[in-house]
């Protein structure tokens, strides 16, 4: 049966309700607009699958099931397989074993399911404490906490440089982009480290540690 699922309460709604393009859920009364596509009726038009004929002598059999005739070749490992053991992935046809491996390892961009964006992590380390500082000032009440975030930069700035250099060659987003974020993170972190260095020198000088040694 074909249903449109209510996005608010999850109730199954008949597609006829959206014949005009818009309808309200009969359960939660939430109004929603829907474009119904032919695939909704696909399950109605499908006939139950029939078992394929067993392979005859001389036929290439499926690597995974000897009772099935091989009809496909895995684009990745090259084995012969039947339709039941194959999956179409974009323009490639892969066996289910390879599909699982490829998705788990994520070496090929077309099969990747997630990525860590190290350039954003480095940027976060570099700019994060400052963003938190601004946010805390905006709260007015907790503006004094902002000062605490500045101390974080003592750790986060070197961490930003480490992450940026460690993952300099690591793949970034699936959508190609340059290394601008990494460069920005390094530059801003260097400024912060420079500021910390200057502060330490000034403080040491203030306490007379340098002057004593010089004299």
């Amino acid at each position: 049966m074909s249903w449109i699922k209510c996005t608010s309460c999850g109730a199954a709604l008949p597609p006829g309700l959206f014949q005009s393009g818009e309808g309200a859920c009969s359960l939660c009364s939430r109004r929603q607009q829907a474009v119904i596509l032919p695939a909704l009726y696909k399950s109605q038009s499908l006939v139950p699958p029939t078992l394929p004929d067993p392979p005859q002598t001389g036929d290439v059999v499926c690597f995974f099931d000897e009772n099935r005739k091989a009809t496909q070749t895995c684009s990745h490992c090259g084995i012969f397989m039947s339709d039941a053991w194959s999956a179409r992935w974009g323009r490639q046809v892969v066996c289910l074993k390879c599909l699982e491996e490829l998705r788990a390892k994520g070496n090929e961009a077309a099969f990747q399911t997630k990525r860590t964006l190290w350039d954003n992590v480095a940027l976060g380390f570099s700019f994060g404490p400052w963003v938190l500082l601004i946010l805390s000032i905006c709260t007015i009440v907790f503006y004094f906490i902002g000062a605490l975030f500045l101390f974080f930069t003592f750790i986060t700035a070197p961490a930003a440089i480490f992450v940026a250099l460690r993952y300099w060659r690591a793949p970034r987003s699936l959508v190609p982009r340059g290394r601008t974020r990494l460069v920005l993170a390094i530059l801003f972190a260097l400024i912060q480290i420079g500021a910390w260095g200057s502060l330490i020198v000034v403080l040491l000088n203030e306490w007379g540690l340098f002057s004593e040694r010089l004299t």
């Binding site: 829907a34 474009v35 399911t113």
Partner: peptide
């Protein structure tokens, strides 16, 4: 972090 989902046009039943 980014998560990727690939949905075949042939499988989309409705746009809501």
């Amino acid at each position: 972090k980014e998560q990727y989902r690939r949905i075949d046009y042939a499988n989309i039943q409705a746009l809501i």
